[in-house]
Computed example of a mutant assay.
Amino acid sequence: MRLYHLQTMVGENLLRYLRVKGYTKTALSKMTGISRPTINQILEGKSPNPKKYEEQLGKITEALDLPNDYFEEFSGIQEEKWQLPSTQDSDRSTISNKSPLTQELLNDLDELLTVAAFYVKG
């Protein structure tokens, strides 16, 4: 349950790792079998259940072939400007009254921008 108490930091480190390594949240969801909304909760540090959180984090580190405590202290690769989140509002918004279509479009836009960032790096 140690990581549950550090979930804000773990979420930030996981998001940084995903962006640096080029993984999308949708890809992580498919790799782990964890739903996209739950992935968002993990990244935001807002998982309500400690036991479930630890289990889901285990699935994530296993899928990425990393040690269980990797995101506790991840300092990893430095992000370049092109790797910084560009649609942060779509993932970190506290407004929960978005229509499902709006949320889906924002998620798709975030995925497209993540992919496009790799081409901008050149």
Rank of each mutant, 00 (worst) to 15 (best):
S47T: 11
K52W: 09
T87W: 06
S35G: 13
Y23W: 02
T32E: 00
K30G: 11
P37L: 03
I95G: 08
W82D: 06
S75H: 15
L109C: 13
T94A: 10
L64V: 03
M9A: 10
V10Y: 01
Q7D: 03
E54C: 13
L101N: 13
L28R: 01
K121Q: 11
L112G: 05
T94C: 10
G11H: 00
V120T: 07
W82M: 07
S47F: 12
E104N: 12
M1R: 09
K25Q: 15
P48R: 15
P50L: 04
G11V: 01
L6D: 07
E104M: 14
L105Y: 11
E54F: 13
E104W: 10
N97T: 07
L109M: 14
L105F: 12
V20Q: 04
E80I: 08
L84N: 09
I34C: 02
E55T: 10
G22Q: 05
S90R: 05
V20L: 14
I42A: 02
E54N: 14
L43Q: 01
I34Y: 00
T26D: 13
E80F: 13
Q41T: 09
L43P: 00
L43I: 06
R16S: 12
L18Y: 01
R92H: 09
E79R: 14
Q7N: 07
L6K: 13
L113H: 03
K51N: 14
K52D: 12
N49V: 08
R92I: 05
K25A: 08
K81E: 14
Y17T: 02
S29Y: 02
L66K: 07
D91W: 05
T8L: 08
S29W: 02
L105E: 11
E55A: 15
V10W: 00
W82L: 07
T26G: 12
I95C: 09
A27H: 13
I60T: 00
L112Y: 05
L57R: 01
P67R: 04
V120S: 10
V120P: 03
K51F: 11
L57K: 02
D108R: 12
L112E: 11
W82Q: 04
R16D: 12
H5G: 11
P100W: 08
N68T: 06
P50T: 03
E72K: 14
R16H: 15
H5S: 10
I34V: 06
Y23R: 00
L57C: 04
D91I: 07
A117S: 15
I39R: 00
S35D: 11
K81T: 09
P37T: 03
A27E: 13
A117N: 06
